[in-house]
Design a protein around this nucleic acid. Structure first.
Lengths: 384, 384
DNA sequence: TTGAAAGCGTTACCAG
DNA sequence: CTGGTAACGCTTTCAA
């Protein structure tokens, strides 16, 4: 029935790792002609004028009805709506947007870095906030240049945007602020006057985690941090967490042991090994990384060290991912979906004129799971 | 410096599980006035006409230059472009779209069900395909009613859409086909004439998994399937996998043991327990579920059964998630990112007139990880 | 309560 | 190669 051709060539693509198979089947296109091509999105489709004509009213009236304006006679409204329903009319959003000068759309500027299991939650949360408010939702990947950001604002594609991966001094923030283009941040700058944000409180989160471990009796607690260049570039989470860690260690009279690493399993494994080589008496690790922290588990396992018997581990991670670990990974909970949702909600509130500047910094929540325990030396008379 | 107010009220929201904290900080808005409100996306912004005037040419000419049309004198082009750069002009996408009748946008209709770690990959893959082709990308969540789908098509917001969660007979497919609105599917119907799709080959994937387990010596292999109502509703993956499982068991002379369950940890735990109660001699489980399969691990653990020593487990899951399991979860690999990317690419090819109908059904790839082994009885003289 | 008409910022056709 | 000008489909004054 089908003539099947199998191209198994290595049709590789830029950043895509594999396209190892492409089977094109030339279907015997029966029935409805050769594929779809009739109305590609703007045919002789029915317009507001058609409705007006059919109803014997003016386009203005139809427009008013479409937009639920009050000044329309009830009878007219009913009649026109009947016709709209009958003809299956639906307005052309593109035109509405141009005429109205608003897009009823928000966009999420999503960092184009590698995948991470928690990021889906940001996206879906923000998308939900948009759809709850009848806004459309753009996902904009890739890190924008200044010019692209300008183009995005000018394009009027969105009424406002959500920014992520915020640096303490962020050119995008200054730019948008100067332009007066509405935005909110997931993350925050050094100075956030007049800008709404929701951010993880890395500072207190780290302090809380280290305090907890210290209370359990740990004395050698390492931080698996972001790479040095990220820290030096002033990336918020990197700076706040590392600084907070250093201060907390000082306060508790503990040594500060920092291992920078990129968010990949390979680098984390390497960093873990380095830590264990240099500090054989290490009993706890706090990881700034998410699901890649599995590499820490694996590195420990390879050395016959057990979690948490020999080393306790804690990370910043979503519930969903934390529970895939064995033992389940204790965490400073990262409610990414909520962050996305809140950001979307704040932005839309802003756009609708309700809503003042909001700074949301939820108290970090430590979720104790089985990856932490008192250190081995104390275990006989365990404190937990 | 700040007056901080903490609302800790239970400001619960519809589907959102927690908004337990809202800290509004009334910043002493120094510097740039009270927030941003100056140019909300459509100020007295500079237009193509301004450029034309400044350059002493007509708008048509500027438009041609903007769209890289060939029929423009090189000198003019240079001059105008200089002015465009100087004035920082960027076209108004909304207007371009209306005038051109194309949106250069695609949308992904994303099922509004619960989160799943693999779904991010679909989204980001599709978004990447869009951005690679300079298209914008809409993420449309929520399951659309017929009317909403109609509105989406008519709105001209997108030139085409990607459909997911396809049923063997899918009203959306018939509708879009009849309308002639461009779309591609991740998944496939019973009849796919004239429609491009990329789909997981659940049929062969299941057969491959069961065959592999049988070859290892397993004789009691259960399928953790989709719920019955999903099967009966004709949801593609549910039907194809369950039917294939049944056929494969028949072919191999093995009993077919099917445990339907929704894709939640609770239901999977329950289903696993039921399986073990009824079939104490069970030695392998094939799961149609993704990261929720962790519940199977936990249920086994609770009964002191070990993976893979006592029970082998295999699932449909992405690499990233599979490797968080301990032991790492063997899988029929689900390259969701690639699926998203391919779907986006196909759709755009379609929109640009290149590209014929493509049916992509990659050969399923079994990734052997440490969650499978020969059954206990055979282990002494193991076959693997 | 309704209608006419002027945009919204582009593109595209058609003359020149 | 360039410039007018009519769309694109809707919203929004402003009069009636």
């Amino acid at each position: 029935m089908y003539a099947t051709r199998l191209k198994r060539g290595v049709t590789s693509t830029r950043s895509l790792d594999i396209i190892r198979w492409v089977a094109i089947i030339f279907g015997s296109v029966t029935g409805s002609g050769t594929g779809h091509k009739s109305m590609s999105a703007s045919n002789s489709a029915i317009t507001i004028a058609d409705i007006a004509r059919a109803a014997g009213v003016s386009v203005s009236t139809v427009s008013r009805i479409l937009n639920n304006k009050p000044d329309v006679a009830e009878g007219t409204r009913q009649r026109v709506q009947a016709i709209i329903a009958e003809l299956g009319f639906t307005p052309h959003a593109q035109a509405q947007r141009l005429a109205a000068g608003r897009s009823r759309a928000i966009g999420l500027l999503f960092p184009d870095a590698q995948l991470s299991l928690m990021r889906e939650e940001f996206i879906l949360g923000a998308a939900k906030a948009a759809s709850d408010a009848s806004y459309t939702f753009y996902l904009i990947t890739s890190d924008l240049t200044r010019h692209q950001l300008m183009a995005l604002c000018r394009s009027a594609l969105t009424d406002g945007i959500i920014l992520m991966e915020i640096h303490l001094r962020d050119w995008r923030v200054s730019y948008l602020k100067r332009l007066g283009f509405p935005f909110v941040m997931i993350g925050r700058c050094a100075n956030n006057n007049g800008i709404s944000f929701i951010d993880m409180d890395f500072e207190h989160g780290i302090a809380q985690a280290v305090d907890h471990l210290a209370n359990l009796g740990h004395r050698k607690i390492a931080l698996l941090a972001s790479p040095d260049d990220v820290y030096e570039r002033g990336y918020g989470p990197a700076v706040r967490s590392r600084d907070s860690y250093a201060r907390t260690c000082t306060r508790l009279g503990l040594p500060a042991i920092i291992a920078p690493a990129n968010d990949t399993q390979a680098e984390l494994a390497e960093a873990t090994n380095m830590l264990l080589d240099r500090h054989p008496d290490l009993t706890a690790i706090v990881s700034m990384h998410g699901d890649t922290t599995i590499a820490v588990y694996r590195a420990l396992e390879a050395r016959n060290l057990r979690v948490p018997a020999d080393v306790s581990v804690i990370a910043f991670i979503t519930r969903r991912a934390a529970e895939l670990f064995t033992p389940p990974l204790a965490a400073i909970d990262f409610p990414a979906y909520d962050f996305g949702y809140q950001a979307g909600r704040m932005l839309i509130a802003r756009l609708q004129g309700s809503g003042s500047v909001e700074h949301i910094l939820p108290p970090p929540q430590l979720i104790l799971r089985r990856s932490i325990a008192p250190p081995r030396t104390l275990r006989p008379n365990g404190l937990a």
